[in-house]
Computed example of a mutant assay.
Amino acid sequence: MDFTDQRLSYEKGTLDQQSVPASPFELLKSWVNEATDQQVKEPYAMSLATCGADQKPSVRIVLMREITDKGVVFYTNYDSAKGQDIAENPNAEVLFFWHELERQIRISGHVAKIDADKSAQYFQKRPHDSQVGAWVSQPQSGVVASRALMEDKFEQLQNQYPQGEKVPTPAFWGGYEITINEIEFWQGRANRVHDRIVYSHDADSNDWTTKRLLP
């Protein structure tokens, strides 16, 4: 398959370094809100890239569940491949891409587990069957002989924890927070001369600086 003749011209917006806010969190929230208002499907979906001790990068989609005053939060199985990567190398990047707005946000930072009580509070807010599903996925990324075995385990757990009964929060499941060190806002422009503004955090002064990158 050859896609070399496929072209789109990005012309929906601009991004001016002189007019961006001092803190990237204001712009991050603004862009997420705009994506939500424009009814982008799952605007909180982000590609998470990790790299463990084997030096092999790995990427997958996860769902951002919170923007904090330091970064972004997502939830997963701690024993998953991504969890093992993070345990070995607690640095990661995430990428949002909203085609409808011709925008990307790229976040780089340090990853750490959030408080267990906060994870438990979120877990209990999930739909009942999603809570059950978390137990089925242990160990996440592990090999399973067949889908039938998964479905049998799901049915057993549904019987053990019927609707209306509390499903315990697994010790192997919870949230991670990516504390942002650098965040890039990308606005598509015509002729591939895109706008790229990157914020970098100075840990000593707690200030953010911005610079424009070549496209």
Rank of each mutant, 00 (worst) to 15 (best):
T14R: 12
D207P: 01
T50A: 05
M64W: 01
N91Y: 15
H194S: 07
V94A: 14
G13T: 07
S23R: 07
E184G: 08
S23G: 06
Y78W: 10
L157Q: 03
S9I: 15
K56H: 14
Q131R: 08
N181Y: 04
G164C: 05
W173M: 01
P21R: 03
L15I: 13
L15W: 09
E155V: 14
V40M: 10
F25S: 01
F185L: 05
S58D: 14
P90K: 02
S80V: 02
Y44S: 11
I61A: 12
I86K: 01
K41N: 14
R147T: 10
G188V: 09
F154N: 00
E102R: 06
H110W: 12
V62S: 06
Q38F: 11
A92L: 01
A148K: 15
Q39A: 15
P24M: 04
W98V: 09
M150Y: 05
Y75I: 05
H99M: 13
N33S: 15
P215N: 14
R126G: 06
Q124M: 08
Y161E: 00
V132E: 01
V136C: 05
N33G: 12
D204T: 15
G164T: 05
Q121V: 14
V132M: 04
F172I: 05
Q138T: 14
P21M: 01
D16K: 10
D79W: 03
A120H: 02
A148Y: 14
A203L: 09
Y161Q: 00
L15Y: 11
V20D: 06
I178P: 00
D5K: 15
A53P: 00
S9D: 15
N91K: 15
P139S: 13
Q18P: 04
L213I: 12
K82R: 07
Q158K: 00
P90D: 07
P24S: 03
I105T: 10
F74L: 09
